[in-house]
């Protein structure tokens, strides 16, 4: 993996703020869509707008956090031993976090259905749920690397 830090790369605090914003956005969209209280006719438009915003944010994040993205996805042979070890730790944390999120979401879903907060659960909700599960699972290891990384400069 390229060792040079991009001058455009975000600092640790900014990276964490972006991560909280994006994953908070995931959670907010999931709550709105899963509630099923939106008018069915405007749901596709809302999904399109949300998809557009997520795509834009995704491109921006890739340009500013690309080192972490590559770090999370690159083959072991492209990394040194510390990077591989750190990534294994990130994979483990991602596995625990992902399972916890899926479990808590299923429990919450059951409660909300029992409490009649969710009145309809059709294709749009299932689609949004599965896309969310996929996107979180795909991006979580790189996100954790971006969260925990403390870069050291060359002197």
């Amino acid at each position: 993996m390229s060792s040079a830090s991009s001058t455009r790369e975000l600092g640790r605090g900014s990276r964490r703020a972006v991560i909280l914003f994006v994953y908070g956005g995931y959670a907010a969209v999931a709550c709105v869509v899963a509630s099923g209280k939106l008018d069915g006719s405007i749901l596709p438009s809302i999904q399109a707008v949300v998809a557009g915003i997520l795509a834009w944010v995704g491109v921006w994040i890739l340009s500013r956090m690309s080192r972490h993205w590559r770090w999370g996805q690159a083959p072991d042979a492209m990394l040194d031993e510390r990077e591989v070890a750190t990534r294994y730790r990130a994979y483990y944390l991602a596995y625990v976090l992902y399972n916890s999120c899926v479990f808590l979401s299923l429990v919450a879903l059951s409660f909300f259905i029992d409490l009649k907060y969710i009145t309809s659960f059709g294709y749009p909700q299932v689609s949004a749920l599965l896309w969310g599960v996929f996107l979180v699972g795909w991006t979580l290891p790189s996100t954790i690397l971006a969260w925990i990384d403390r870069p050291i400069g060359d002197d």
Partner: peptide
Amino acid sequence: SRKDLADAVGVNFQTVGYIERGDYSPSLDL
């Protein structure tokens, strides 16, 4: 520099920094 040493031993220069700081213990090989 860290980069010179890193290039010589085939790691990322940040790994040299992590070792110096005591945040990472290198393998016997490294």
